[in-house]
């Protein structure tokens, strides 16, 4: 299988800085880009190589996908179906409940047509926004903790099934971050 770390020319690590991955992609991308090709066959070749590079970039810049790939490289195939880890449960139920409340408010907001009924929804909107911001903060904290753990593993030798667990955690964190971000954007509309 393709080693995306090699493809992008960066060390095989569980913890990677997004900026560093991007810089590597930009440097390689400039050299491989089909726009700089000479002649049709060179163009086709570069286009293929660039698409492979872009795939490597997409995988390595996403923490869950990177961890899964690393696990695979180490010969461990992670189970795809996600089970929420015990330690994530309280955060999960908190986010789940909040998202439901926000969705109910968003539904009310789409129905409000007059300035007055919209004004009446300002207070709950601001309240929801601050709850969402609080959750986003907690998620960020969890992501940082995870990143620290990954860095510690990079120092030692990474253990495949521990990586798989971290990969699942990262996938949940990423998904919730996205859901919260989406709701915050819609609340501002």
């Amino acid at each position: 299988m393709t080693d995306y770390f090699e493809e992008l020319g960066i060390p095989r690590r569980a913890a990677l800085d997004a900026e560093a991955v991007r810089a590597a992609f930009q440097a390689r991308g400039a050299a491989l880009h089909p726009d700089h090709a000479r002649g049709e066959s060179d163009r086709a070749e570069k286009a293929g190589a660039f698409q492979d590079l872009q795939e490597a970039y997409a995988v390595l810049s996403s923490t869950p996908r990177r961890l899964r790939h690393l696990g695979e490289l180490l010969g461990y195939v992670a189970p795809r179906a996600g089970i929420i880890d015990e330690s994530l449960m309280p955060l999960f139920s908190k986010i789940h409940t909040l998202l439901q409340k926000v969705d109910a408010l968003l539904a009310q907001k789409t129905q409000a047509t007059s300035a007055l009924s919209k004004a009446l929804l300002t207070a709950p909107t601001l309240e929801m926004e601050s709850s969402l911001a609080e959750c986003a903060g907690e998620l960020l904290e969890r992501s940082r903790e995870l990143h620290d753990r990954l860095r510690a593993w990079d120092e030692a030798a990474p253990v495949p099934d521990v990586l798989a667990g971290a990969g699942q955690e990262a996938a949940f964190l990423e998904k919730w971050e996205l859901q919260i971000q989406q709701r915050r954007l819609r609340l501002m509309e």
Binding site: S114, L116, T122, A123, L126
Partner: peptide, 24 residues
């Protein structure tokens, strides 16, 4: 009625913002 409640709406928005600021 929509027009008559315009200032009322503005007061409510301002009040909600103030409350949020105070909470923060």
């Amino acid at each position: 009625l929509d027009q008559a409640t315009e200032s009322l709406a503005a007061i409510l928005v301002e009040k909600a913002m103030d409350d949020a600021m105070r909470r923060q």
